[in-house]
């Protein structure tokens, strides 16, 4: 186990090919934190060491650390004893606890309600959007700097705004707060290659732009169903352990 862990850790810090940059550093460290290879409160190597180990510039490392801080996966402390420290396992434990304690009938009911809101918002947006609205939705969706739950919230809120409905927008905010952090938690396994929320968004936006309300609604409902399936499967895996 010890050696396995050591070799797995050496993979984490293996040099990168020259074409990869900050994004690859972020992805590799996120995965390592998510799967527990880097543990809570553990100090990361210094910026210079990380740069040397990954074979990238210090600027790239700094960029990656900014992104990790924004996702609350890393905390940077200044001064003596300072540096960058892993903090995601706390988040992960919290999400795991929430997931384990989840009531499936409640999740199903909440998700059904949410699908009704988000689906209708997409249908109305297709009826009411003009070219400038489509650009706004695309602009919101192009910002991939934050964690997934925040991008999902921003996307669906913008669709509700384009639907010209203040009530649907308020409901979007409520569901994002209630369900969003769980539904789009970065902790959930991303191994399923078919799961690509941004591809879903692009298809929904295209349907809205084409004025096809029925398709926009169906794609939105499917998009949410996939997220719920992922959540339920993880819940079932966790309670079996």
């Amino acid at each position: 186990m010890g050696t396995e862990r050591t070799s797995a850790r050496s993979v984490v810090f293996a040099p990168l090919d020259p074409h990869s940059r900050a994004e690859t550093v972020v992805r590799r460290l996120t995965d390592a934190i998510t799967f527990g290879l880097l543990t809570d409160a553990e100090q990361l190597p210094s910026e210079a060491d990380l740069a040397a180990q990954f074979g990238v510039s210090r600027v790239t490392v700094r960029e990656a650390l900014v992104a990790l801080r924004q996702q609350n996966l890393v905390e940077t402390r200044r001064g003596r004893g300072g540096g960058s420290f892993v903090r995601a396992p706390a988040v992960r434990d919290e999400v795991n606890t929430r997931l384990t304690e989840l009531s499936l009938p409640t999740v199903r009911d909440t998700a059904d309600h949410y699908a009704a809101i988000a689906g209708t918002a997409a249908r109305l947006a297709a009826q009411r959007a003009d070219a400038a609205d489509i650009l706004r939705i695309e602009e919101v969706d192009a910002d991939t700097s934050g964690p997934l739950h925040r991008m999902e919230r921003a996307y669906h809120l913008e669709v509700a705004a384009v639907a010209q409905s203040a009530r649907l927008a308020r409901e979007e905010v409520r569901f994002a707060t209630e369900l969003g952090t769980l539904l789009w938690s970065p902790v959930l396994p991303g191994g399923d290659c078919a799961y690509d929320p941004h591809a879903d968004h692009r298809a929904i936006t295209a349907a809205i732009a084409a004025g096809d309300g029925d398709l926009a609604r169906k794609l939105t409902e499917d998009h949410l169903e996939r997220a719920v399936d992922r959540l339920v499967n993880l819940h079932l895996t966790l309670i079996e352990q």
Partner: peptide, 12 residues
């Protein structure tokens, strides 16, 4: 506007 003001009043 008219627009959904989700920044402050959450109103149309």
């Amino acid at each position: 506007g008219p627009y959904v003001d989700y920044v402050c009043a959450e109103q149309y």
